[in-house]
Design a protein around this nucleic acid. Structure first.
Lengths: 193, 193
DNA sequence: TTATTTATGTATCAATCATTACAAAAATAA
DNA sequence: TTATTTTTGTAATGATTGATACATAAATAA
């Protein structure tokens, strides 16, 4: 390969940019913020991402989708997928305060982008729907096996969990407190049993 | 009273500005947006609100708090407060698509302002906590009277409802569909019975 | 070595940002 | 009428926005 070697790798820029977007959202994050966070100047930045700020944001969101996909694979290998999902919720309680305040970047994006950018909005909604689908299928399977008392439509229960996930996204900011969150999470998970 | 008469009344500017903030949030709303929406030019605008954009936003949020307070008074007069609260949730389902996409301006603000403006954030969180408190007390009363089967701590159930409220704020955008929302709302309200 | 290619750093762009300055308009008080 | 007060509209402010232009650095291929 010819040419001056790359210092600022794409993946690393996206990773650093994601951190900023996660905290401040899309609109409130300036290119100056991104340059400070990634170290890359305007030259490198626009050389790597012709689409500018928006493209990097999209990549940051896409990276998050991959994280969900990885969890999905873990789920498919698990002997008790629903328990894994429940533990996923439970793990929220013990997160650091800073993590509570950041919340879920996908849910944040749905709220922020509604009248701002149709594509970014639809993208984020789609990811949440995929997560919901993951919940729904896990519940459906457990019901089929006979591991669940509740016979409520798994579609409703899946939506219940994604609604909870999004509600938790705000509740964590209201109460970034381990004990409060833990109690709340256990209470809501008990509905799926 | 001396001086040129006011064309753009404070309350009306706030009302029109609120509509824009509700849709686009704080950061993505420019003063140009507000001037277009309110009709008032920079002169009138800064003459009325010395604090500029931020002050108008605060006033818009405060107006929303007043709406909640009005509901609280209605609640105190009602013979079945909990049922009124439930109907409040049920009424969400039949809102217009545009209303779904706007969501709850307070919940939106909590999400948007976290790392942007400490005061606006804390303000919005406080309002959500007051609404939660309203839920909690209504539930507590019904339990005392003996109208509720569930003996779960009313504090937990109040938080359950505010979590649902915030979750719904995102779910409505995922599914701005009357039937889907209605089913979901009934299912979640059934927990409080 | 020399030509070519790619990445980087810096200067700069026009556009927009929130805000201020200020003169004219439009009312009342004297 | 004239002085005073307040609101309004417009022009301008300096700062910041996202993005581009371009020379230079730093590598490989010929």
């Amino acid at each position: 390969m010819r040419g001056r070697p790359t210092i600022y790798e794409d993946a690393n820029i996206v990773k650093k940019a994601q951190e900023v977007f996660w905290q401040k959202g899309y609109s409130a994050t300036s290119l100056s913020d991104l340059q400070k966070a990634t170290g890359a100047g305007a030259g490198s930045f626009y050389n790597t991402f012709k689409g500018g700020k928006k493209e990097v944001f999209q990549k940051a969101i896409e990276e998050r989708r991959l994280a969900f996909d990885a969890f999905k694979i873990e789920l498919s290998k698990s002997e008790s997928p629903l328990e894994l999902i429940k533990d996923f919720f439970r793990s929220i309680a013990s997160a650091e305060e800073n993590e509570h305040l950041k919340g879920c970047i996908i849910a944040n994006t749905v709220v922020e982008m509604t009248f701002i950018d149709e594509n970014l909005e639809a993208n984020a909604v789609q990811i949440l729907k995929e997560v919901e689908q993951m919940f729904t299928e896990a519940i459906k399977n457990e019901q089929t096996i006979g591991n669940l008392k509740t016979q409520t439509d798994p579609e409703i229960l899946g939506r219940y969990l994604i609604t909870f996930w999004c509600g938790l996204n705000t509740l964590r900011r209201m109460y970034p407190d381990k004990n409060i969150l833990k109690k709340q999470i256990e209470m809501q998970l008990a509905v799926i049993s």
